[in-house]
Amino acid sequence: MGANSWAPVLMRMVSDQILFGVLLSAPVLLAVLVVEVAFEIVSAFTQQLQVYNLEYGLRSVMGIGMALLLLHVAQDEIISQFSAYSRALTRLLENAL
Rank of each mutant, 00 (worst) to 15 (best):
L71N: 11
L93F: 15
A7N: 05
I78D: 00
V34Y: 14
H72F: 09
M1Y: 12
I41S: 13
L54H: 08
F20A: 02
R59N: 07
A74V: 01
G2Q: 14
N53W: 05
I18T: 12
I41H: 13
V51N: 05
D16Q: 10
Y85C: 00
V51Q: 04
A26S: 14
E55V: 01
L70Y: 00
V73R: 13
P27I: 01
E77P: 01
Y85V: 00
I41T: 09
L97D: 14
A88S: 11
S5V: 10
Q75T: 10
F45G: 12
L97R: 11
L33T: 07
V35Y: 00
R59K: 15
F39E: 01
T46D: 15
I41V: 09
G63V: 03
S83Y: 09
E94D: 11
S43P: 08
A38K: 02
P8K: 05
A38I: 06
G63Y: 03
R59C: 02
L33D: 06
L89G: 10
L24Q: 03
M66H: 00
V32D: 01
I18C: 03
R59Y: 03
I78E: 00
M66K: 01
V9G: 00
L92T: 07
R59F: 03
E36S: 05
I41K: 15
G57T: 05
S83Q: 15
F82Q: 09
L89C: 11
V28R: 00
L69F: 14
G65F: 03
N95W: 14
Q75N: 12
Q17I: 06
L19Y: 11
T90D: 10
H72Q: 02
T90K: 13
L19N: 15
S60G: 13
L29F: 12
L54N: 10
N4P: 04
I18F: 13
A96H: 12
